Amino acid sequence: MGFFKNLNSKPTPKQVAKDRLKLILIHDRGEIAPQIIEKIREEILDVISKYIDIQVDDVEISVNRSDDDEGENSSALIANIPIKNIRGR
């Protein structure tokens, strides 16, 4: 039963702080200003909210950078958006 208890648990303040620090580091390395990321977040949420009820407080958006096999950098915008309900059902 301990397995199922962990599935529903909220992240600890320590984990939240750690995730926020990672996000800040990613933004710094991604060379995208935090203000730009926040504008992107707001616009994405505005569009998605037209069609889907979402949990705005739990949305996570980040930019990840990685090197490919040829030594080139690539970036990816990652969005984790919890869905409450899909409208129109």
Rank of each mutant, 00 (worst) to 15 (best):
E38N: 07
I26W: 10
I78Q: 11
F4A: 13
V59S: 05
I32C: 04
V59I: 12
S75A: 15
I61Q: 00
G71S: 11
E60F: 13
N64Y: 11
I40V: 14
S66N: 14
I54L: 03
I40G: 01
S74W: 09
F4G: 11
K18T: 12
V47H: 02
F3A: 13
H27M: 13
G71H: 10
V47S: 06
Q55Y: 08
N73G: 08
K5W: 05
K50I: 01
A79T: 09
L25R: 15
Y51C: 00
K50Q: 02
E43K: 15
G88F: 01
K39D: 13
L45E: 02
K10P: 04
V63T: 09
L77K: 06
Y51W: 07
D68V: 11
H27F: 07
E60A: 11
G2T: 10
L25V: 11
I61T: 01
R65L: 13
E31Q: 09
V47L: 07
I40W: 03
M1A: 13
P13R: 01
S62A: 15
R41V: 09
F4H: 13
N8R: 09
M1C: 10
D53C: 04
L25P: 03
S9P: 06
A17S: 04
N85L: 05
K18D: 13
I52P: 00
D28C: 11
K14R: 15
N85A: 05
I54E: 01
S66E: 14
M1S: 15
H27D: 10
M1E: 10
I36P: 05
E42Y: 12
D46N: 12
A76V: 08
N8V: 07
E60S: 12
F4Q: 13
Q15C: 06
L45A: 06
E60D: 12
E42W: 10
I78K: 09
Q55K: 14
I32V: 08
S74E: 11
L7A: 02
F3S: 12
K84N: 12
V63R: 01
R20E: 09
L25S: 12
G71C: 10
A33S: 15
I32L: 04
P11A: 04
V63D: 05
N73F: 09
V16P: 02
Q55M: 10
V47Q: 05
L7D: 03
R41G: 07
S74D: 11
E60H: 13
T12M: 07
